[in-house]
Design a protein around this nucleic acid. Structure first.
Lengths: 157, 157
DNA sequence: GAAAAGTAGTTGCAATTGAAACTATTCGAC
DNA sequence: GTCGAATAGTTTCAATTGCAACTACTTTTC
């Protein structure tokens, strides 16, 4: 039995949670990420961090863990853990860098590439569906706004 | 020494992580949430879940925990924990519902209201700054697109 | 060329989160 | 009215995450 409560005049400057952009962003992002995470998990037994590592290495082979962290907005601990489970599942191979022995270089194995070629269409189909209600102009605007917002968010971080 | 790697033609249908909307949403949302979380924590010793509970009760007093969960997109366990720490900090009061003894009803204490009236302007200032690069038309579009995307995301959840 | 400072990557530990099970109570069917 | 299903809210336990400390190595400074 859903009771409709009358909103009281919020004392301080008017803040309504479901008009508040940071809140809405968070809820939207969680909803989207959860759908994708479930699909990746179900179909490929892959977590989101693992998926990010696979995706970036598909496009840029032979990155170090730190390079991967930079390109995926993950911290290096998260990358290290994702890499470990991907290595254990034989979806990556790791070579030592011959010039810097602290460093090693990552690349998808054949099995890793296969995961990628199967997962990428699924991810793109999800994105397409998500955006299906938006006109072409809306999509361009969304792209632009996200870029703008992200730049600003970084700046005021 | 940042090395610029040449992207290889990604085999499967082209998926570039930093063009991929779910990824960008997640990074943007995390950046924004982290800024706010740090501010709330620093200034009021309040976590994001706690802040959400306070914000919703400022506007809608006398909700039950389940009502709060519905209005904040939190699950009831998260609400229960946030409520407990807010009660411990004396920022909430809880009354038993006289008609349903499973239920109880939450309301901000004077101290809780004071937190709210101090935090809300700060949150709104952050939002204002975040959106400062956007024209009025862009803001309306952003609002509309977020609503649209959220509806769609729920649907295909 | 030795010492100090910096970087790559891992590990350990504590805090956060999520899911399932649980208690207490109410609702609904009969 | 009684029994089974549903609901409010809490607890428990396991998985995830985030931070600081750590090892190993490289670069810089003097």
């Amino acid at each position: 039995m859903k009771k409709s409560k009358t909103p009281t005049a919020a004392p301080a400057s008017r803040l309504h949670l479901d008009r508040f952009i940071p809140y809405r962003l968070s809820v939207l992002s969680n909803t989207v990420s959860m759908s994708l995470a479930r699909a990746y998990e179900r179909e490929f037994d892959l977590s989101i961090p693992e998926w990010r590592v696979v995706a970036v290495l598909a496009r840029y082979p032979d990155l170090s863990a730190v390079d991967v962290a930079e390109r995926t907005a993950m911290d290096k601990v998260a990358v290290s853990r994702a890499v470990q489970s991907l290595l254990a599942a034989k979806r990556l191979v790791r070579r030592n860098d011959r010039h810097d022995r602290r460093r090693s270089v990552l690349r998808l194995s054949a099995s890793g590439r296969s995961v990628y070629t199967r997962i990428a269409p699924l991810a793109l189909a999800y994105e397409k569906d998500l955006l299906s209600q938006l006109s072409a102009a809306d999509r361009r605007t969304l792209d632009r706004l996200m870029t703008l917002l992200f730049k600003r968010a970084r700046l005021i971080m």
